[in-house]
């Protein structure tokens, strides 16, 4: 089983090397997609020994994930694709837990969840925003999960081919859930630990960011089919 971690990175010069090193211990290859960062994220990733793919124009996190996933499938022959963050919020140790159901053939998609096991030090504001996200997802996509916008996920090769992310920006997490439901993929959730620090909170989704996510999602769902 070839396991490849995809790390989309935008202006993560300081943190990307640590994230690569963390993930590399548990996977066969690490693919970093530098989404046209303004700093030296690309150089840092390259020096860390990961495959480096660079977007010549910034296209958003969803687009970067899709680029990395396609590369892992087409060029590296990945059997399992892991979506991992560049900012050090996620723990490499959790990779084993999220790949296990796929290796055992129990599921083709494994979603990380911050609410199962409750191991994270999540601030209340973030908690509320995420809970609203759950409600929203249950209503629009009709899929019941405990954590919708967790970027930590593992996809089997077939699932990764089925899930083509077309929403370039943040709403891709909702789109992935939508596609899991639409393509009738078998999914399970596994608890993962997310480390919150002042630095990563400033970069993460704010409550108002959630409105942009909702807008993008609806736009893609209804408008783009025209």
């Amino acid at each position: 089983m070839k396991i490849v971690a995809i790390i989309p990175a935008y202006n993560e010069e300081e943190r990307v090397a640590a994230a690569i090193a963390d993930a590399a211990r548990f996977v066969d290859d690490v693919v970093v997609v530098d989404d046209c960062s303004k700093d030296r994220t690309g150089e840092a990733a390259f020096e860390s020994g990961a495959y480096l793919l660079q977007h010549v124009i910034n296209r958003g996190q969803g687009a970067a994930l899709q680029t990395g996933t396609e590369f892992a499938l087409e060029y590296l022959g990945a059997d399992i694709v892991i979506h991992f963050d560049a900012d050090g919020q996620m723990c490499g140790e959790d990779i084993e837990a999220v790949t296990e159901p796929i290796i055992k053939g129990e599921a083709s998609v494994v979603l990380g969840s911050r609410f199962l096991g409750a191991r994270s030090n999540m601030p209340l504001g973030r908690w509320l925003t995420l809970r609203c996200g759950l409600l929203f997802t249950a209503m629009v996509s009709g899929i019941k999960v405990t954590d919708t916008h967790n970027g930590f996920r593992a996809l089997s090769r077939n699932a990764a081919q089925d899930i083509k992310i077309t929403i370039d920006r943040m709403a891709h997490a909702s789109e992935i859930l939508d596609l899991i439901k639409a393509k009738k993929l078998v999914y399970v959730e596994r608890p993962v630990k997310i480390r919150y620090s002042e630095e990563t909170l400033a970069k993460g989704q704010s409550f108002f960011g959630a409105f942009i996510v909702i807008k993008d999602f609806f736009k893609a769902k209804f408008f783009d089919e025209l």
Binding site: V31, V33, F46, E47, G49, A50, Y51, L52, L53, Q54, H55, V56, I57, R59, A63, Q66, T67, E70, F71, E74, Y75, T166, D168
Partner: peptide, 20 residues
Amino acid sequence: QNKELTELVRKIAKLEAKRK
């Protein structure tokens, strides 16, 4: 055009992938 641009950027990124 945004979608097409993403496809183009993606294609270039995949073709020029590198590793130390």
